[in-house]
């Protein structure tokens, strides 16, 4: 059965995530990241940040909630049970700090079949409350046995 590609180009409305100090701390601790700018507001301000700043890969925390509705959209017809996360890219601009409200929109860039696998590529675009670009993500999800 050929892979359904109707959803290519489809966009999902943005979801908004409020960044908080404790969540940044929790993420940095899980990764063993020790720079005080992730834990201490004074250290963060001394380094030029508005507030405690998130490590770059915290992008998954604020942007994942925007990807889930796309993956689960019946129009995409992605077999979640056979899915693996095959590739990921981020580009960063404005740092994400505690207090920020980051809105992430998702778009389906491509759906292709290769070697009996389905490659689903989604793009996320995250902007903060001032409209500044925070991060752009490219998510490559691979479904086995399509």
């Amino acid at each position: 059965m050929p892979l359904k590609t109707d959803a290519v180009g489809k966009e999902w409305p943005g979801t908004t995530y409020q960044v908080g100090r404790e969540k940044i701390k929790e993420y940095a601790n899980a990764l063993g990241i020790e720079n005080p700018v992730h834990f201490d507001v004074e250290a963060a301000r001394a380094a030029g940040f508005r507030d405690v700043v998130a490590p770059p890969m915290f992008a998954v925390v604020y942007s994942s909630p925007a990807v889930a509705p796309a993956i689960l959209d019946p129009e995409v017809e992605l077999n979640f049970a056979a899915m693996v996360h095959g590739g990921q890219a981020f580009e960063w601009d404005e740092p994400a700090c505690s207090g920020d409200e980051i809105t992430t929109a998702t778009k389906c860039l491509s759906i292709e079949e290769k070697d009996g696998k389905g490659f689903y590529v989604f793009e996320t675009n995250s902007v903060n409350q001032d409209g500044a670009q925070v991060a752009r993500g490219t998510w490559t999800l691979i479904v086995r046995g399509v």
Partner: peptide, 23 residues
Amino acid sequence: VAKANAALADGDPRALKRLSVQM
């Protein structure tokens, strides 16, 4: 991987501009 690269900038979270990986 992001952490290892940030170490080149003493952990400054502004240093990493792009990271692209295959899992």
